[in-house]
Amino acid sequence: MTTTLTAGLGLKPQHFDQALRCDAPGIWYEVHPENYLVAGGPRLAWLEAVRARHPLSLHGVSLSLAAAQGPDPQRLRALAELVRRVQPALVSEHLAWSTWRGRYYPDLLPVPRTRATLDCIAANIGRLQDALGRRIAIENPSHYVSLPHTWGETDFLAELARRSGCGLLVDINNAHVSAHNLGDDAGAWLDALPAGAIMEVHLAGHRPDAGGQLLVDSHDSAVAPAVWALFRRLCDRIGPVPTLIERDGDIPPFAELLREREQAHAILLSDGKGIRALRPRAIPPGADRVLRETA
């Protein structure tokens, strides 16, 4: 099984057999754990078959870590059981909320970056890391409107990582989309991130909205040239980190995704600094953790 990770792919059901047989150096696969929170059956058996040959990453979409209420304890227990079962190389979630008064919504919604939301999110991340017994990575969201923030985004992410001990999953497409929509500089945004906190990178495609004014983080097209350029810029500054190609709509054949993955793999190897082996990590000792009640 591969032990050093370079570029990976989001694992889709129609590609299971090809993904299982693929022997590309450094390849790994990401899945949404919500699709595998079951006690048994063919879906989980197939995931374990892939895990026997390739490293996995679990990328959550439903814990709603930016919500005022803490993560659902039952969902935390189910996720912890899946983590114990498949031993993923990385576990990650979004800096967003998707629950309100017991209801789940289909969007990953942003929040104003204030001291109160920082306290809430850091505490929720702490609950998640305690449940899993490992460090997780948090993904930056896409932005479409300006909210009443009191923190700049990179400062907020850096402080969140410092306080909770989490790492960062840097979605470069999200950064590009947000910069376009809000009139910011994506390159300067990337330059301001704390290099030591970055655990993973995501690359994906986007499209313009119907009015042609906004970019939408659609994950239904190839990675855009501007996003590749930002990826090279980040790698030049911090060195290579495990990088995922995301595709969730208009899914092409596996061979086409693999070619895009090879482009990311080549960039990661091009600076001669070597690739970080991504392994399960404990919560770092001495992190300035937020006091919280045990869920």
Rank of each mutant, 00 (worst) to 15 (best):
T2G: 01
A264I: 01
S57D: 05
D23R: 13
R292F: 01
D191E: 14
I251D: 01
G212P: 12
Q14Y: 08
I138T: 14
D23G: 06
P225E: 14
L20Y: 15
G8C: 09
V227L: 06
I121T: 14
V201N: 09
A68H: 06
R247F: 01
D191H: 00
A80T: 02
G187E: 15
A80L: 06
A175N: 04
R101P: 00
N174D: 06
E262Q: 12
P225Q: 03
Y144P: 13
D17A: 13
W46M: 11
W28T: 12
I27R: 15
G126A: 08
D217E: 03
E262V: 04
M199S: 14
T4M: 12
A186V: 01
E159F: 03
A204W: 10
A282C: 00
V38M: 13
E153H: 05
P141W: 05
V83G: 04
W189A: 02
G286A: 10
R276W: 09
V31H: 11
L268D: 07
I251R: 05
E159Q: 11
P33F: 06
W97H: 05
C166I: 14
A186Y: 06
V223P: 03
R259A: 15
A158W: 05
G10I: 04
D155P: 07
P240I: 00
P42S: 15
W97R: 02
P280S: 05
L268H: 04
W97L: 05
P194L: 05
S270V: 04
I251W: 01
Y29T: 15
I27A: 14
P240A: 15
V38N: 04
L160H: 09
P148Q: 08
E159G: 02
D72C: 15
P71Y: 01
V170N: 05
A224K: 08
P240D: 12
L5W: 07
V201Q: 12
G26E: 04
H94F: 00
F254L: 03
L234R: 12
E81G: 04
W46C: 11
P13H: 10
N181C: 07
P42F: 05
G70P: 11
P242Y: 02
L147F: 06
D155L: 01
E34T: 08
L234D: 11
L44W: 00
P71E: 06
T114S: 10
R232T: 10
T99D: 01
A266L: 02
H32E: 11
L291R: 11
